[in-house]
C-alpha cells in the first residue's frame, strides 16, 4: 500500500475515534459548563456503557437487536447511576468543586472495582451488529466503523437540538449563564443539575456502547477516554462546547494518524505536550474565556 493510502486509512481511523471522543468529551464539557464541577468518574461511565452493551448482547437473540437495545438501556442505566450519584454525593457537598473532584475520584474506584467484582478482569468482545466492508480503491474498510461515526454525528446533532430548541436546553443555558438569576426566574436548578449530570453520563455511556464492537469491554477501559476528554476540554477551553468539538477532532484525528505511523503511546505524549503549548499561549484554552 502506498503512503497516501496509509495516510488516508490513518485519517479515517482518526475520524472515527474523533467522533466517539467528541461524544465522550461533550458529556464532560456539559457537566463542567453548567455545574462548574469536574466529573473524574466520567471515563468509568463510558466503561459502564461498554460493559452494559456486552451484558445486553448476551441476553439478546442477535447482534443487531442487542446493539439497539444497548443503545437504549446503556444510557438509561448509566444516567440513572449518575442521578443517584448526584443525589447521594454531589448535592450533599453542595457542588463544591474540590469536594466534587475528590468524591468523583472515589466514585471512579467504586464503579471500576464493582465492575471487576461483578464482571471480572477479562476483556470481552461484542459482535458488531453489521458486517459489511466499504471498498476503497486501496483497501476495504469496516462498515460498522463508518456507522459509528454516523451515529455519533447524529447524537451530537441531537444534543445540539436539545440544548438549543428545548425547554431543558434553555434551562441549562440559563443555569450556565447565571445560576442565581436562573433560580430567581423559576428554573429548577437542582433538577437541571441532576439532568445535566445524567445527560453527561448518558453521552459517555453511548460512546461506550458504540465502541465496544471495535474495542472489547474491560473494567479498565475508562482511563484513556477520561484522559483524552480532559485534553480535549482543556485545549478547547473549559466550558466551551464549540471548543470541545473542534479540539476533539484535532486530537482525535492527529491521535489516529500518529498512532498508525508511530505509536499510540507517542500520540498521547504529544497530545499532552500540545496542551502545555496551548496553555503557554492561551491559559484559558483556545475557545475559553480569558481568565481575569
Amino acid at each position: 500500500m502506498s503512503f497516501g493510502a496509509y495516510f488516508f486509512l490513518a485519517v479515517l481511523e482518526g475520524t472515527v475515534s474523533a467522533f466517539v471522543l467528541a461524544l465522550t468529551a461533550l458529556g464532560l464539557s456539559l457537566v463542567f459548563g453548567v455545574m462548574r464541577v469536574v466529573n473524574v468518574a466520567h471515563g468509568e461511565l463510558f466503561m459502564l456503557g461498554a460493559v452494559i452493551a456486552w451484558w445486553v448482547s448476551q441476553m439478546a437473540g442477535d447482534p443487531l437487536s442487542g446493539f439497539l437495545l444497548a443503545l437504549v438501556v446503556g444510557p438509561l442505566l448509566v444516567g440513572g447511576i449518575a442521578i443517584a450519584a448526584d443525589w447521594a454525593i454531589l448535592k450533599r457537598v453542595d457542588y463544591n468543586p474540590e469536594a466534587t473532584i475528590v468524591a468523583t475520584i472515589g466514585l471512579l474506584y467504586i464503579i471500576q472495582q464493582s465492575v471487576l467484582i461483578l464482571y471480572g478482569p477479562d476483556a470481552r468482545a461484542v459482535e458488531a451488529p453489521f458486517y459489511f466492508r466499504v471498498q476503497f480503491p486501496w483497501f476495504g474498510y469496516s462498515g460498522y466503523k463508518l456507522i459509528v461515526a454516523a451515529l455519533s454525528a447524529g447524537l451530537l446533532l441531537a444534543t445540539w437540538y436539545l440544548l438549543k430548541k428545548t425547554r431543558l436546553g434553555l434551562y441549562m443555558r440559563a443555569t450556565q449563564y447565571d445560576q442565581e438569576t436562573a433560580q430567581a426566574f423559576g428554573v429548577p436548578v437542582r433538577r437541571v443539575y441532576a439532568a445535566v449530570f445524567a445527560l453527561g453520563g448518558g453521552l459517555a455511556a453511548l460512546a461506550g456502547v458504540l465502541v465496544v464492537p471495535i474495542q472489547q469491554a474491560h473494567y479498565l477501559m475508562g482511563h484513556d477516554p477520561l484522559l483524552l476528554s480532559f485534553i480535549v476540554v482543556i485545549i478547547g477551553g473549559l466550558g466551551s462546547l464549540r471548543g470541545t468539538l473542534i479540539a476533539a477532532f484535532v486530537i482525535g484525528i492527529s491521535d489516529g494518524v500518529i498512532s498508525v505511523f508511530f505509536s499510540p503511546t507517542l500520540a498521547k505524549i504529544l497530545a499532552t505536550l500540545l496542551v502545555a503549548l496551548v496553555l503557554v499561549v492561551r491559559p484559558g484554552g483556545l475557545f475559553g474565556a480569558k481568565p481575569a
Binding site: I89, R92, A99, V102, A103, G106, L107, Y109
Partner: peptide, 9 residues
C-alpha cells in the same frame, strides 16, 4: 473509593 467518598461526606 469508599474512603474518599466517606471523607468528603
Amino acid at each position: 473509593g469508599v474512603v474518599l467518598v466517606v471523607l468528603v461526606l
